[in-house]
Every structure is written in C-alpha cells, then in structure tokens.
Design a protein around this nucleic acid. Structure first.
Lengths: 119, 119
DNA sequence: CGGCATCCGCGATGATACTG
DNA sequence: CAGTATCATCGCGGATGCCG
C-alpha cells in the first residue's frame, strides 16, 4: 500500500521495479476492474453489474486502493441519487497494453496446455 | 491451482484469459523466481541465495506450484549431496517479455509518481 | 445509488526445527 | 544440499446490515 500521507509507493523497498506492478495489481478483482475501465469510463453500478461476483464493499475497497496508487480517477457528482464515475489515469492507461499481452499469453497458455483436453 | 490429476487449469472458469496469468503469477515470490530463472537456470540453493527473504518452505511450495502449472522444469540428479536444477519451460519463457514490460512500466510509474520526492 | 461499519473464516505466508 | 514437518500469524476478502 502507498504511504498514508503522500499516497506514494516507497522508492527503496523493491529489489526490482517489477515488484511494483505486482503489488498494485495484486487485488483479486483489480484485473477485471482495469479491463473494464480500459473500454470506457464506468459508474460504480455499471462496474458492479459487469462483475457480478464481487461484493460492493470489496469493489469499493479495491477502487479506493487503485485511486491511492494513482491508477484510477474517481469523480463524484453531488446529486441525489449520487453519481460516481471511475476512469483510468494516464499511467493507468499505460498499463492496458500489459493487460492485453497478459491476455494473449493466457490464451496461448490454454492452447498449449489444453490441446486434446475435453472441456 | 491446476486440477489434481491433470495438472491443467480448467477451461471454462474464466471470464477472460487475462485471469490465468494473474492466477499463475500471484504467489508472493513468483515474480522474483521467474525473473531469476529468466537469466539462467538455477539450483535451489542459488535461487534461495538470490532471494534472501523467502523461507525454504515457501520457495519450495511456489516452485512446485509453478511446476504443476508447467511454467518451470525441475531436474533432480540423484547424487549425494543432491543437485536440483530449475529452469523455465517454453511457455514459461514466453512470459519473460511480459515481465520485462511490467518492469518498464514499474520504472515509469516510479518516475511519474516520485518526481521531486525525497527517498 | 454508492457507499461504510462490523464481524469473521480461511488460505497464504512466516518461524523454527528437523531429515534423507 | 534440498528440502519437509509443525505451529503460529495475519490480512484479504466475504456476509450482513445500516446510512446520506
């Protein structure tokens, strides 16, 4: 987690910069969140609808965490009922290609390991 | 975890193939393991030396898991004292670019977020 | 609608000691 | 050298309920 006051990750606690994305993206629902937001900005309820198996509490938690990390923007409109729109920040958007590559690798992995395997 | 008998991940339990790499690479020390093995094959003790903060138990656990997923090869030579060499499989090697990209993104992230930040 | 407060279980990780 | 055995811990994530 980022520092409480600065919301920044500490500089020197890593052996490789590699550990930073693994720390940031390690939440159970983070990949799905970013995957969804990469297509379009979404309201809390829309995200929730796209991810039926996550509870609101945990979804909210992970969104807040991503916000502190500077990966997502949270924009709240003070209306009744409330409207809250989440979007990816610039650095967040720069992570999208990573996720696309991961997705490709995942497909390749399945292909290699599941060939001839009845599903 | 892979199926007990086939050691294969199930075909249909994923919303996106994206979830597969996140499942496989989610172990706390997995990034370091793969990062190390991407440079050269290594014996258990060499890996342990390169990762001072992991206990042998957990290192062994995560190596076994990666072996079941088909990411690493384990080659044991029946000598005294024993020699065990770990290496990346083909599909494991195909993940190296992903890790390099993650590393780059991590560096970029630090640069953006830590500019002007005293470490 | 978009949360937060509270309680809780469990799996992943860690510490320590021991072994073929 | 390359692990296993045992026990302890700890925090993520889930369930439920309430609120502005």
């Amino acid at each position: 987690m980022p520092d409480d006051r600065t919301n920044k990750v500490s500089c020197s606690n890593y052996t490789y910069e590699l550990e930073i994305p693994f720390e940031i993206f390690s939440g159970k629902w983070v990949p799905s969140i970013i995957w969804n937001l990469s297509k379009e900005d979404k309201r809390f309820g829309e995200l929730k609808k796209a991810m039926p198996k996550v509870t609101p509490k945990v979804l909210s938690q992970q969104l807040r965490m991503l916000e502190r990390y500077g990966i997502v923007n949270r924009k709240a409109y003070p209306e009744v009922p409330p409207v809250v729109v989440y979007s990816l920040t610039n650095i967040g958007k720069k992570a999208i290609p990573l996720f696309e590559n991961m997705n490709e690798w995942g497909a390749e992995y399945l292909e290699i390991r599941e060939t001839g395997y009845h599903c």
